[in-house]
């Protein structure tokens, strides 16, 4: 039996349903499209912001690097200046140490020179200073006899028997230094000696009270380890010229006055007995 065709109304209804579904699908697609557009717009906004922020950050970092580089240069410069200052301080320290050493030598020498009123002890102290502080091996102390105008050795160290015991004022290097009152320093290397020459000493220091010469210190030879005179040696010579002279002069006067006192006392005792 042949199947009967569907009525037209049914076909219309089916078409309408398909159309309705198509409409609904289209609506959904439009909505989805709207959502995607919104999302794309959002992402575009974020990207724009990120670019701006990235550029800002790079700029900021560049500025920081430049600042740090400047700071680094400044620190290197400061370090250099501090290093220079440090070197300067180290040099100053050495100078101060040396000055301190010199002052200690001068203080001890002058302290010892004025620590006694005994003539022989004064002589011994001068010998010690010249030997231990200056570094002389052969030297003498000569005193001037104003009656005979003769310089005579009163103390010596290390000198041989060929050395002259006395010298006339104005005679040779020693006599001339005593007459002029000017210190004599032989030119050239003080260690440049084959043998000791007692006619040509290395140094002659007149011992003076104001301008009045009372004697001389004469150095002929330095210790083997003493290569040259240093600044403190010249300071010591200058100090000895004045202080050794007053020490010797005052101790001599004191000894004389002591002797006179003893003599007077003996007279007084004798008178009392009578």
């Amino acid at each position: 039996m042949e199947k009967e065709p569907a009525p037209i109304s049914k076909k219309v209804e089916e078409f309408l349903q398909v159309f309705k579904k198509g409409e609904e699908f289209t609506q959904e697609l439009l909505k989805e499209n709207e959502k995607l557009r919104y999302r794309v717009a959002q992402l575009e906004e974020v990207t724009k912001f990120s670019d701006r922020e990235g550029t800002y950050k790079v700029h900021s970092m560049e500025e920081r690097i430049k600042f740090l580089e400047d700071e680094n240069r400044s620190l290197i410069e400061r370090y250099r200046v501090v290093e220079e200052e440090n070197k300067d301080f180290a040099n100053r320290y050495i100078e101060v140490e040396s000055e301190n050493n010199n002052l200690a030598n001068l203080y001890v020498a002058s302290y010892q020179l004025h620590s006694t009123l005994d003539f022989n002890e004064s002589l011994k102290i001068i010998l010690e200073i010249v030997m231990n502080l200056i570094g002389a091996e052969e030297f003498s102390i000569m005193m001037l006899d104003e009656k005979t105008n003769e310089l005579t050795i009163v103390a010596q160290e290390g000198m041989g028997p060929e050395a002259r015991a006395s010298v006339k004022l104005g005679e040779g290097t020693i006599g001339n230094a005593a007459r002029s009152g000017e210190s004599f320093y032989r030119e050239g290397d003080p260690t440049d000696l084959v043998g000791v020459d007692y006619l040509h000493p290395l140094v002659v220091i007149p011992l003076k009270i104001k301008d009045h010469v009372i004697g001389v210190i004469v150095i002929y030879k330095l210790l083997v380890q003493k290569q040259e005179f240093s600044n403190v040696d010249y300071e010591l010579f200058s100090m000895l010229a004045g202080h050794a002279a007053t020490a010797l002069f005052s101790s001599k006067l004191y000894s004389q006055s002591e002797r006179k006192l003893t003599t007077i006392q003996s007279f007084l005792d004798l008178l009392k007995e009578k």
Binding site: A104, N105, Y107, Y111, Q112, I125, N132, L133
Partner: peptide
């Protein structure tokens, strides 16, 4: 034995 040297060394 030298008082000068004793004083100088002690000073140092």
């Amino acid at each position: 034995d030298s008082p000068t040297m004793r004083q100088l060394i002690s000073f140092a």
